[in-house]
């Protein structure tokens, strides 16, 4: 079953700006799906339409088979939304926010308190449950919105840049939390600017650019399209400049080399060649995130194909 089935969605804002130009997209139940795209590409509009915060101009949306036009309330009850901007009452305490939110979904107050305690503890917010939420840190506010979205135990969780402005330690603990949720069967759709995040978490990926869906494929297939990868090698200072007929080698400074290796070549060959030239490699790392390279290739260089 599709968790989300978008068919030919269009959105024209007042003033004539066409934010979405007929997007069709399906996300399988249980998937961890990344929706990427540059700023203003239409990601948040797409999420807004799915969660019924934005009125679509045309097209059909169904959530777990419930049509947004004819079965709105059933469709809404399947979704938990974590928006990009903080959108809770800054004067209310986290516990109050969560319990009320559960109430809007018909969860009885007694059960709502039990769930609120569970999620506040899981997301490390229990100690802050009675403080005005405006006093929480940025990371805590993001986690509060995740807890709020889970209060009615949705089958689909949509996160619009959930880790924006969150430090790396906190980001990693949020990733772990989301992976656990996904393993429990919750379908997750994520938009993010941290492509490392998408590569690490998501199985499938869609890329939106200028209101069009320019990619919709599995992460593996997309990454397999990379022809080459660039590695940075830390070396002992060589006696002479290393060279190779098979690899493109650039010496960045006395102790650093940049080596481009294509898909058909192996790193063993690189090491063998450098060893033959008496160059000792101390460590190695990727120059950039692989998905980032593809993303830039697809979007910025205009090497895209409309579907």
């Amino acid at each position: 079953m599709y968790a989300i089935d978008l068919h030919n969605i269009r959105k024209v804002y007042k003033g004539g700006v066409e934010a979405l130009k007929g997007i069709s997209l399906q996300v399988q139940e249980g998937d961890f799906y990344a929706l990427l795209g540059p700023n203003g590409a239409g990601k948040s509009t797409t999420i807004g339409i799915i969660s019924s915060l934005v009125n679509k101009s045309a097209g059909q949306v169904s959530v777990f088979g419930y049509d947004l036009d004819t079965q709105l309330e059933l469709a809404k009850s399947q979704i938990g939304l974590v928006p990009q901007e903080f959108n809770f009452n800054q004067f209310e305490a986290p516990l109050q926010i969560l319990v009320n939110q559960a109430g809007y979904y018909g969860v009885k107050r007694k059960e709502a308190f039990i769930r609120a305690e569970k999620y506040l503890k899981q997301l490390d917010l229990w100690d802050k449950r009675a403080e005005p939420s405006r006093e929480l840190s940025g990371g805590m506010k993001r986690r509060l919105m995740i807890a709020r979205a889970l209060m009615h135990e949705p089958r689909l969780l949509i996160l619009d840049e959930p880790t924006a402005g969150v430090d790396i330690e906190m980001r990693r603990s949020m990733w772990k939390f989301l992976q656990k949720l996904n393993a429990q069967g919750v379908t997750i759709i994520l938009t993010t600017h941290y492509l490392e995040e998408a590569e690490m978490l998501c199985r499938n990926i869609g890329i939106i650019d200028k209101g069009n869906l320019v990619e919709n494929t599995s992460m593996k297939k997309l990454l397999a399209r990379l022809d080459s990868e660039i590695f940075i090698l830390d070396i002992d200072p060589p006696a002479q400049l290393p060279s190779s007929d098979r690899f493109k080698i650039t010496q960045l400074d006395e102790r650093t080399l940049e080596v481009e290796v294509n898909k058909r070549q192996s790193l063993n060959t690189v090491f063998a060649e450098l060893s033959a030239q008496a160059i000792r490699v101390n460590s190695l790392r990727n120059k950039a995130n692989r998905l980032e390279e593809l993303f830039i290739e697809l979007v910025e260089k205009g090497n895209i194909h409309d579907k």
Binding site: L74, K76, P83, F88, Y104
Partner: peptide, 12 residues
């Protein structure tokens, strides 16, 4: 504060 969205996304 946009917390009206809490109600708008819910099946209310």
């Amino acid at each position: 504060q946009r917390n009206v969205e809490e109600l708008l996304v819910a099946p209310v």
